[in-house]
Nucleic acid binder design. Structure first.
Lengths: 140, 140
DNA sequence: ATAGAGTCTGTAGGTACTACAGGATCAAGA
DNA sequence: TCTTGATCCTGTAGTACCTACAGACTCTAT
């Protein structure tokens, strides 16, 4: 018989279910120190507090928004220090936004090129294809 | 003294320079069998033919256009078989184009979300930031 | 008591490279 | 001819971000 465990502490499986996160990813985030080492039961099972759950949600949401692990590390260290300002967080978000916008630009250019290449192709049973020529390029 | 080597055969460094490809990437492509094992000098240095150079250009250009290694493998195996048709190549290109367009869509959604979150932030010296709140989410 | 679910650890795999260590070879000048 | 520096060789490890598996242990319910 063990002493009563706080009701708001959950094990890894439950945390995964609640957060929609893959089971192994939680352990991975602990390994790379995005999540702190959680409490353990006497037998060694991880027990996550409400704070842990909030922190994981923060990480997952940031990932969804395309922040890299390193960017999240920066965000978290600001939040952890407790002394962050709105301006600092805003700056990091803007930086990230710039990256995203640039990526959209690049992909649009790619899309145009692919469409151009593709439009020159008759899409027929003919052997040889202008797409292949385009992929090899000019130089001989 | 060695017998004369064909002028159009180049070593790895020269191939890298000509193609703009990283030196190591060439060996990597050989390892994963996108490039065939090239000829060698008696002492073991790789010698690339004009065909090898064309093939590498094909791969690099396809990568630039965002084709994955597996997609390129498909394209190359069609071209290698010699029996590919315009239609087959076109189909693969269209498939890839669909992926690219989807990615653009996803990133645009992300961009909008980031802008929304960011716009609620006063970008000031204040501690606490609505971005942080947004990243943690609703559930508590 | 036992079956099955859940958890533990360490490690390998996937994608597409890139970089390094430690040694052999090549090309050009002294 | 010797030497120096650039280039080449091999194998392996590292990057980002997970995901999956093996083999052992623990928990829960019947």
């Amino acid at each position: 018989m063990s002493f009563t465990l706080a009701r708001d502490h959950v094990k890894r499986g439950e945390l995964a279910r609640r957060s929609g996160c893959n089971l192994e990813t939680i352990r991975y985030y602990e390994g790379i120190k995005l999540l702190p080492e959680p409490a353990r039961t006497e037998s060694g099972h991880r027990l996550y507090s409400i704070d842990d759950q909030r922190r994981l949600r923060f990480i997952l949401r940031s990932r969804e928004l395309g922040f890299s692990i390193d960017e999240i590390r920066s965000l978290l260290s600001m939040v952890d220090s407790g002394a962050y300002t709105c301006g600092e967080i805003h700056a990091l978000t803007q930086e990230h936004l710039t990256l995203v916008s640039q990526k959209i630009k690049d992909l649009k250019k790619l899309e145009r090129t692919l469409k151009n290449i593709s439009s020159e192709c008759a899409n027929s049973d003919a052997p040889d294809c202008p797409i292949v020529e385009a992929l090899v390029g000019d130089a001989g």
